[in-house]
């Protein structure tokens, strides 16, 4: 499978959860576990561009497919880790508007935002809320998350001023 652009091969039982493969076998602990039963969305990743709960996906279904996690959003530093100074447009928008508080839902929320923005849908308040309805946040009241996605849509559609 392809994870954040890297070809990856794992030798694990087919029913092992994608979540555990990412977190434990590949060391990509940015994807979080909140409930283990597909209710909270903290483990959301993109599977061939589709938003999925990694706790509900057995690894056998990922064979030969493309996975994108939160670690694949920002630019990379020399050590291969995400470069904190090279946030992508959605991450920057979350930082600016206050869309991340405790941060535990944030990786999944970012992936939901990416799936929404990639869909090309009109970034209305209602459409955004629909798009993140499977991702629970207990800190923000969602207002600033919606603001962040609006801002990201706006920023993405305009070339940088500088």
């Amino acid at each position: 499978m392809l994870v954040n652009g890297d070809a990856v091969e794992v030798d694990v039982p087919g029913m092992r959860r994608l979540l555990d493969v990412l977190r434990e076998d590949l060391g990509l602990s940015g994807t979080k576990e909140g409930c283990g039963e597909g209710e909270c969305g903290a483990c959301s990743v993109l599977l061939d561009g589709e938003l999925v709960d990694a706790c509900l996906v057995p690894i056998c279904q990922v064979d030969g497919h493309v996975v994108r996690t939160v670690e694949g959003l920002a630019g990379r530093a020399v050590d291969g880790q995400p470069d904190l100074s090279q946030l992508d447009v959605v991450q920057s928008a979350f930082l600016e508007t206050g869309g991340a508080q405790c941060g535990i839902c944030t990786p999944g929320m970012l992936m939901a935002a990416h799936a929404f923005l990639a869909s090309g849908a009109d970034p209305t308040d209602e459409a955004i809320r629909e798009a993140i309805a499977g991702n629970l946040c207990r800190c923000t009241g969602y207002t600033k998350i919606v603001d962040a996605i609006v801002l990201a849509a706006h920023s993405a559609s305009q070339p940088p001023v500088e």
Partner: peptide, 10 residues
């Protein structure tokens, strides 16, 4: 600590 949370590094 926002950037660390937003990149999965935290």
């Amino acid at each position: 600590e926002g950037p660390a949370k937003l990149t999965g590094v935290a």
